[in-house]
Amino acid sequence: MAGGYEADLNALAAHEPEVREVAEKVHQAIDATGAAQGLGDMNAFGIVGQVVALGVEYWISSATSFVKALGDAGHDVADKVKTTHEALSTHEENSKAKLTAIGKDLQA
């Protein structure tokens, strides 16, 4: 415990796959949305509707890029959670080993 904060290593380890799963679902949703777009279809919007369709297509493309970036950020967060868990686990093991060694030296 440092500065009033305590890291629960098991809980931290459990969050990495959860965050990664959410990020993957965001990517799947984006892929499904992109596959469903029929904005350039003349039968769907007609000639006059193409003007509106182009604006909507640009808006969807921008929104898709933004949400895809969120999914990418989710994977980045998952990587950082994993790295943090590994670093804290290593630190804890090293601290235990050093304290055990100090205890043995004091008893000798």
Rank of each mutant, 00 (worst) to 15 (best):
A2E: 12
G3W: 13
Y5L: 09
A7S: 10
A7K: 02
D8R: 01
D8E: 02
L9K: 08
N10E: 11
A11V: 03
A11K: 06
L12V: 06
A14P: 02
H15S: 10
E18P: 01
E18C: 05
A23T: 00
A23Q: 00
E24F: 05
E24V: 02
V26G: 00
H27F: 10
A29V: 01
I30W: 00
D31C: 09
G34M: 15
G34R: 12
G34W: 06
G34H: 03
A35N: 14
A35S: 07
Q37C: 12
G40Q: 13
D41F: 12
D41L: 11
M42Q: 08
G46T: 03
V48C: 01
V56K: 03
E57A: 10
Y58T: 08
W59Y: 04
I60R: 03
I60E: 05
S62C: 15
A63P: 00
A63W: 11
S65Y: 04
S65H: 09
S65K: 10
F66S: 11
F66Y: 06
V67F: 05
K68V: 08
L70W: 04
D72V: 12
A73K: 11
A73M: 06
G74E: 01
H75A: 01
V77N: 01
V77Q: 02
A78G: 07
A78T: 00
D79M: 14
K80Y: 12
V81Q: 02
V81I: 08
K82A: 06
T83C: 10
T83V: 09
H85M: 04
E86V: 03
A87D: 08
A87L: 11
L88A: 15
T90N: 11
H91V: 15
H91R: 13
E92D: 07
E93N: 15
S95G: 04
K96D: 06
A97C: 02
A97L: 02
T100E: 07
